[in-house]
Design a protein around this nucleic acid. Sequence first.
DNA 1: TAGATTGTTAATCGATTAACAATC
DNA 2: TAGATTGTTAATCGATTAACAATC
Lengths: 202, 202
Amino acid sequence: MSIPIISLQRLPIYLNYLKSLDNKDKYISSGAIARALGMGEVLVRKDLAFTSAHGKSRTGYVTEELISALEEFLGCNKSVPAAIVGAGGLGCALLNYGGFKNYGINVVAAFDNDPKKVNISEKIYPESALKGEIERQKIKLAVICVPASAAQEVCDELIACGVTAILNFAPLLLKAPPQVSVRNIDVAANLAVLSSQIKEEL
Amino acid sequence: MSIPIISLQRLPIYLNYLKSLDNKDKYISSGAIARALGMGEVLVRKDLAFTSAHGKSRTGYVTEELISALEEFLGCNKSVPAAIVGAGGLGCALLNYGGFKNYGINVVAAFDNDPKKVNISEKIYPESALKGEIERQKIKLAVICVPASAAQEVCDELIACGVTAILNFAPLLLKAPPQVSVRNIDVAANLAVLSSQIKEEL
DNA sequence: TAGATTGTTAATCGATTAACAATC
DNA sequence: TAGATTGTTAATCGATTAACAATC
């Protein structure tokens, strides 16, 4: 059975936690992970069962094996090329962020229609080069950091170039065919939810 | 009954959609919204029922009233002061982003322990000023944009200063008391999920 | 009136949790 | 052996969807 997205989303949390442990014991139990992360231990075991990890009765999981199983499942050892469209503040911040490497994701190009941006980094190309670079480097994964007004157009162009997975920071719902995976991060909406929760408490 | 978080999270999606309509008809039905956003129409009605909006049989909701009801529920007309901790690439990008105003959120201060950052903008303070400014401006909402290694320490300090809602971009699970709302945005983990989904398709 | 739409109640679906046999 | 932990099966919980009466 294929892993449900809701389980897949938790795998990076487990991996982050395990890697953050300073003095790793040889073994770790689902109960210990669950307690540290505030989750149910059965849930942890079910999630981990989707990977190649196998726990041992009485002792739990071999910590290093569990980390390796999560890394393998998430493709951390592969090198997946990714592109960023829109080299504004957010796009540049992501371009300079090193944390994607932990998941085998390599941001190889960014695109912007402002010629001034193009000289900031050799990875930034004019938007006219988008089709050529995406096809040349066989990029399947892209991040949209352009304003909402341009996002659907960029999305369509990316899909036409062969991109099949898109992380969208623009605050709108992108239309895309079902074979293309789209995830949305709306920072303002997240803040709005928190802001509403503050008011509730009053 | 208090709105479940999962419904609350969808309200900004409805609001964005409604505001994005170019030629707004006087009325809009839950079915039309549902079709545009790829959701069930009963779900839309149930979500909207948490706001003060009331639809009319046969005609649907008055578009402008529905927008107002969503804005009111989400507190878009209030002015909620917010702070950003960590004025690196992401922190600065968020500081310069104008989209928070739509939800009544006003980023009034950013903090960084690098003295060079402090002169970039008059809103950026040294981290030593954190306690003073947060308390002076009665800030309850904060965004953590520091590296994972410093995030828990910053979180503790914010809570000690009276912050009750935190948006965390650092890839780790923050420990916070239950009366503090924490939301996490792990960009790398989101990309990892997409990357895994690409591989599945092969 | 007839028809479209709301809002509510009941049914379904999926995810989480509880229970427990297997096992090291 | 006794005890801790896994992995699985059954029960519960919550969210979504279906059905439908009310109504404009």
